[in-house]
Design a protein around this nucleic acid. Structure first.
Lengths: 349, 349
DNA sequence: TGTTAGCACTCACATGGTTAGAGTGCTAAT
DNA sequence: ATTAGCACTCTAACCATGTGAGTGCTAACA
């Protein structure tokens, strides 16, 4: 059943008011603040209907109405107006973002910080997933007689290295040979793929010393691959939520914090392969039944993909926040798209 | 003025009781639980004296006594018995610590996690400071025509790398030459030292292309040096403090969280050049007037240095916690001392 | 028939008074 | 010097009451 124009107006008014003040909103205050041309009594009747349809709830008889998840969902899907960021806001974001293609980690962390500052919510951001990254080359370098550096380089410039110790001395030549062998073997394969295959004996281990060296190196190689696959998750602004009335009780705050400390939960959330801004409201989340999670995807060369997100009570400024996140991720994607030098940023300033 | 034997006993009893129960302790309960052979009235008199001397306070007239910072200080300096860890506890720590010389970051993060789990407090841990690390070599490697990897390797096996873009193509030979030049220039110098000196034109820039390349690389080089200097700070177990009665008020909890979110504050705390286990109680801290901070130092080759710490209310199990931290840091230092292969851990298990 | 005024009713919350209990501090007896 | 006894203090819990915001219903109205 569809809602009448007036019902929509009233619902919107209730949502606006509740998002603003975090307190159950009564018919009288709606009638006063929003000029709907009807009396509180009429609004009461409509409210009653809206409640029956599941858009509003009632903490107790003599309290005002509170929007339900269903109401927010309707709001986000149809009622919400995206906020156009002002030039000043855009400028602020551009300046603060300080994005650089070469430093995913720093950029992403800054994005999370910025996001939580602007929204006054808790935020998190994930560095690009590298499942599809392909290996470009592998190199082994000596540090001292028994210590060497193993370095894996991906096609898009991802680099990870480990220092490892070996139990037998080896020569520079052996290291170079093994580097070459391994590069031949793994070049062009994705990290995922490389990690799965445990073809240790594939390549000719003609000399015994070489076999031994390889045996020393392989475990570290696998561990380094794993490192390279691991995304970093940055979480910022968790103390912001203390300022929200919904978390003025210690138990609620604790619950939130405990969830927020569970990085793995977020990581899992982030791995969903959706695109753009996604809003998950209240019960739509499995945990977090009273929180809304908004994520937005950014792109790296259209190939790798990462996310930023905010989390807060279902009562949040959806229009504003989704707009900010959209702008922010577009900005990130733009920065991460360039392959012809890193000059763009300087040009703009 | 010195305290009498009996006063010390009473003070110790009060501290024990308060640390255990977090509630002001009265004369009667002391007399009952601890067999001091005197009546509550006598204990009351002594308490009164102890309060006059500043070891105890009184939330209000009809409440029991609470130890002051001064009392805890006395306790830590003279009364406290270090707890001998049981074989089981040691084994647990050894197993869980999972220390490896090659992976400072992971090891240190695990140490922080472990520490907060054992103590039920918030913990933090700092990766080794690398101010004194000396540069071993510098290498530049091509990824594609305009992208290259800059790698700085320290004498003790520290490696940091950056991917950077250059605005002019260059040859493999040029990269190798520049690597060599830079290595000659910086080898043996500490990171601190290298960062300070901006001798950009020192080395022969005979060919113009080389000068240009160098100009492209140097800013990234400096930034990478900075990266290499930066210690990582891991913080764990902050939600533990929600379980403590002193943080059952939302305001106290918020204050704590806000401080805990200020990594810079901890970093600064950590940079103090003290050694071993250091206990800083209440007012002795500049912020955190009602918290105790315990830090402990671990060593890497006796040269580089890092710290782990716990933070909680002044009411904490000093004896137990300091012992655990001592054991833990010894364990870390031991792992980080070895230079003759990484076999030790396996030997022990 | 939709809208509205009016009014009884509900419920959370604040206020204030009372009580119980834990603990002190003092005094006088041991 | 120690202790029993007792008056005194103060918090926390409990209860009773009042207040006000807000609803839901009914009857009047346009």
């Amino acid at each position: 059943m569809d809602l009448s124009e007036r019902q929509l107006q009233i619902l919107q008014a209730i949502i606006n008011d509740y998002v603003e003040n975090a307190e159950p909103v009564g018919s009288r205050s709606i009638a006063k603040k929003y000029d709907l041309g009807v009396s509180p009594a009429t609004i009461r009747n409509e409210m009653s209907d809206l409640e029956e349809m599941g858009y509003l709830t009632h903490p107790h008889t003599s309290a005002g109405r509170v929007p339900s998840d269903k109401a927010y969902r309707l709001y986000v899907n149809t009622l919400m107006k995206k906020k156009n960021l002002s030039a000043k806001e855009k400028k602020m974001i551009n300046e603060r973002l300080d994005a650089s293609r070469d430093e995913f980690d720093r950029t992403i962390r800054h994005a999370a910080e910025l996001l939580s500052e602007i929204t006054n919510l808790a935020s998190f951001a994930m560095t690009p997933a590298t499942n599809d990254e392909t290996i470009s080359f592998i190199r082994l370098m000596p540090v001292d007689e028994r210590t060497l550096i193993l370095m894996i380089v991906g096609e898009s410039g991802n680099v990870t290295n480990t220092t490892l110790r070996i139990n037998c001395p080896c020569t520079q030549e052996q290291l170079e040979l093994l580097s070459k062998n391994m590069t031949v073997q793994y070049k062009g394969r994705t990290l995922d793929d490389a990690l799965k295959s445990d073809i240790i004996e594939d390549v000719g281990t003609d000399i015994e010393a070489m076999g031994q060296l390889r045996g020393n190196v392989m475990p570290s190689f696998m561990k380094t691959l794993e490192d390279m696959l691991n995304v970093n998750l940055y979480m910022e602004g968790m103390t912001n939520i203390f300022n929200l009335p919904e978390y003025s009780s210690i138990d609620r705050a604790r619950d939130f914090m405990e969830l927020f400390a569970r990085k793995d939960w977020f990581t899992q959330k982030m791995l969903a392969r959706d695109d753009g801004v996604v809003v998950t409201i209240g019960e739509e989340n499995d945990s977090l039944k009273d929180c809304t999670l908004i994520t937005a995807t950014y792109h790296v060369d259209g190939k790798l993909v990462g996310k930023i997100g905010v989390i807060g009570p279902t009562r949040m400024k959806y229009g504003e926040i989704t707009s900010i996140m959209e702008y922010l991720t577009n900005n990130l994607s733009e920065t991460f798209k360039l392959t012809d030098g890193s000059e763009r940023k300087e040009d703009e300033e």
